[in-house]
Design a protein around this nucleic acid. Structure first.
Lengths: 167, 167
DNA sequence: AATAAACCGACCGCCCTGGTAGGATTTATT
DNA sequence: AATAAATCCTACCAGGGCGGTCGGTTTATT
């Protein structure tokens, strides 16, 4: 498994904000209720988005959150990065703490680098798919499936289970 | 962070086996020493590879492991899948235990599906990059860097990661 | 017989994740 | 002015997974 629930919750939150008319604050409470998520935890999640400048907030009664930019201009790699930190397939990519054996940046006979080649390709694959998806797309998708039954997504790759989506 | 150390260790192990002449067993001990990894833990790792049919083994003195197929015919998605299980960006992709709030397969107003669209693209990106990399490539890469000082890979971030190889 | 290896299953400490609790501060409404 | 609604902040906590160890059994070679 790759991303934690922060990513899931945070993305849902962003989609929810994208569905609202901008400049008009939406309370976390409303979102928590709509999505069935724990409010207190959402607070922590949205804090990251705010610090990353993706959403803005107003305090006090009738306060809330709204998108800092139009959804069309928000690429999902920004969102996920804000929520999860560095997007990397392996520990050593994020911290350069050489304590662990895990990675071999060090020219340890140069061997470890082969794995690094692999992980960099994976990282590239992830980041590219995130970069090429905008929040607007997700909002649009969410709108289209508002009432109608959900339709099967086309699997993002060939083979291997998980073709299953639907419903 | 995405993959666990099992993936790192397992890939290193496979590369190491790929460097050896096939059909000739290499002992785990040798690999553990060469890579500086704990032997007992490697046993667990290699067990997964064996059960997946990627390596074969011989017991007894002068026993060991070797690749079940030529490295050219081993795509890295098989390897990683054997080591890590289903390759998925989110819990709910692997287990369909609907207990958690995490995912919304369920037609919960159809909203949750927007996030699913995103995760499927990510999953596609990961799997594609793994599928298009063969073990042979990594072995070759490892051979080329045998003696020379390790040179920095260009960061995979904006690039597609595949350009990043250099040298 | 002795040794070298693969195999197996149980165990265990640490840390991170997901979540809660309780408050402090700001603002709108009455 | 008082109240309520909301953001904001910090600390805390239980559970589980991860990385790793240990002891032992089996199989083959010398």
């Amino acid at each position: 498994m790759i991303f934690s629930s922060k990513a899931e919750y945070g993305v849902r939150l962003m989609v929810e904000l994208g569905r609202q008319s901008p400049e008009q604050p939406t309370s976390l409470k409303a979102i928590a209720d709509a999505e069935g998520l724990p409010l207190a935890y959402l607070e922590q999640v949205v804090a990251r988005l705010r610090k990353a400048g993706l959403v803005m907030s107003a305090r006090g009664a009738h306060g809330g959150y709204w998108l800092a930019r139009p959804a069309e201009e928000i690429a999902m790699d920004e969102v996920v990065h804000a929520l999860e930190g560095t997007i990397a397939p392996m520990e050593c990519f994020v911290h350069d703490h050489t304590e662990r054996v895990l990675c071999s940046h060090e020219p340890d006979a140069g061997r470890g680098c082969a794995t690094k080649l692999l992980w960099m390709r994976v990282q590239g694959g992830v980041i590219r798919s995130l970069q090429t998806t905008t929040l607007a797309e997700l909002v649009e998708f969410s709108r289209r499936h508002e009432r109608d039954q959900a339709e099967p997504l086309t699997p993002g790759h060939s083979g291997d289970g998980r073709t299953a989506v639907a419903v």
